[in-house]
Computed example of a mutant assay.
Amino acid sequence: MTQQITVHGAVAEGFETVREEFAAFVAGEREDYEGQLCAYVRGRRVVDLWAGAEADSLYGVFSSTKGAAHLVVALLVQDGTLELDRKVTYYWPEFGAEGKGAVTLRELLAHRAGLVGIDAGFSAEEMADDRAMAERLADQKPFWRPGTAFGYHALVIGALTGEVVRRATGHTLQEVYEERVRAPYGTDFFLGLPESEEPRFRSVQPMLPAPEQQAVLAAEPTGPHTLSSIAFNTHVPEPGTLADYANSRLVRAKGPASAGGVASARGLATMYAAAISELDERPPLLKPDTVAEVGQIHSVGYDLVARAHKSYGLGFQATADMWHPILGAGTFGHSGAGGSQAFADPRSGLAYGYTRRRMAFPGGAAPENERFVRSVHRAALAP
């Protein structure tokens, strides 16, 4: 007999349907399911649920890390330290090699630079080190004429924008994030997990595809010279898996800003709540004009890497167009390959975070997010 998973946590009055939705999903999952769901509305925590582990368990959140990375960039733009329409070479002269001299910071953030990887690929050690990747990327010829198209810079965007941050401030992106975002709020979203926090980390479990899912995977282009293989660094002799990447202590310790973050659902939701709402008696991190800028769609349509319709703001995904049409215009956030989802919807005041341990199929925001987001959003808008 299958052991039923217990749902823990609480919801605010008016959000009882969210708990029911979460519990119904968990009841139909495998007995080894682990996941967390958290949400704020205008700075008030209204959903805090978990099952299969603990409320403060930490998970590899893959590309949800990009949300933290580009919150840092947004703060520096807001400060005037960075200017979106300056050329990247103003901050990082070496970047201009091989025809990249005209690329602006805005284009870089919008996945328009054509610099999704390098011909020779990165070693596992380089993949954990943003500065090492940035140095090699500077010498790479772009894979399309910058500005003419866009494609997901899946594993390198944080290294690229992080090098701009380092050149402009003298500090790594991870250091700025720790000082201005994570430490002030004590949020469980780390770009560089301290050894002392390692006991809370739950290793990523790879997906176990059903036969029909295996058929879908087999039909995907897997040639070693495709743009997608270069972007995901699978064109190297021993590429490893995404689960291997997140389960690497070196990756967790260094916190590469594209996909090396570690978080709980509370950590994800708290960061986005702090971005748009008063939280802990602090004003929102981002001013309304900055919120509008980062959430404005800059790239939409056919993504050359993903080979599908995608939408990006400035370093963030345009979450309403890309994942959840029910959300307000200007919603910004980022999902992760393991199934995590996180975003801020400024129009409703909703900040959302979801994590799970076993990687979801086929990658990106896990399908259950659709029912959770709809339920939370409906409750947030209720009179």
Rank of each mutant, 00 (worst) to 15 (best):
Q214Y: 06
A382G: 09
G338D: 07
L173Q: 06
D321T: 13
G301C: 01
Q341L: 14
Q341E: 14
H153V: 08
R167F: 07
L242P: 00
R44Y: 01
R45H: 06
K100A: 03
F143E: 06
V26Y: 05
H111I: 05
F143Y: 15
A306S: 12
D56I: 06
G339K: 00
T172P: 01
E16I: 09
P209F: 08
G330D: 08
S335Y: 03
G14T: 06
A138V: 08
G101F: 00
V165S: 05
T290C: 09
G315E: 03
G349M: 11
F150H: 14
R371L: 12
E198N: 08
T169I: 05
H70G: 00
G43V: 03
G80A: 12
D244N: 12
S299E: 01
A168S: 11
P284T: 02
E94F: 01
F190G: 05
F361W: 06
T81E: 13
P194E: 12
R42K: 15
G295V: 13
T65V: 09
A210P: 01
M127P: 02
L173D: 06
A69L: 05
A329I: 14
R282T: 01
D244A: 02
V61A: 05
A365K: 01
Q174P: 06
K141A: 15
A380K: 09
L108R: 02
G364C: 06
E31K: 03
G313F: 04
V305H: 02
T161P: 04
G147H: 11
L227M: 13
A292T: 09
T270F: 01
E175G: 07
G261H: 03
E20L: 12
P288M: 05
L105P: 08
G313I: 09
V376M: 09
S277T: 06
P237A: 08
F332S: 04
G240C: 05
V103T: 15
R145N: 12
E179W: 10
F361M: 00
L327W: 11
N247L: 03
T104C: 02
V294H: 10
A132N: 08
Y152V: 10
V7R: 11
C38T: 14
G117Y: 01
A159L: 06
R131D: 14
P346R: 13
A124S: 11
G35S: 02
V18K: 10
G14N: 10
G67L: 08
F372S: 03
E54N: 13
A351T: 00
A10V: 13
V373S: 08
G349Y: 12
T104G: 04
A113E: 04
L285M: 11
R356G: 02
L327Q: 04
G353M: 05
A269G: 11
V300W: 14
A269Y: 11
R180N: 03
G158W: 02
A215G: 12
A257T: 15
G121D: 01
P239M: 03
A318P: 07
Q4D: 13
H8I: 10
A120Y: 07
Y245Q: 08
L327F: 10
V7E: 11
E197R: 15
M322E: 14
A97N: 04
T270L: 10
S277Y: 04
A253P: 03
Q317M: 15
E107Y: 01
Q4W: 05
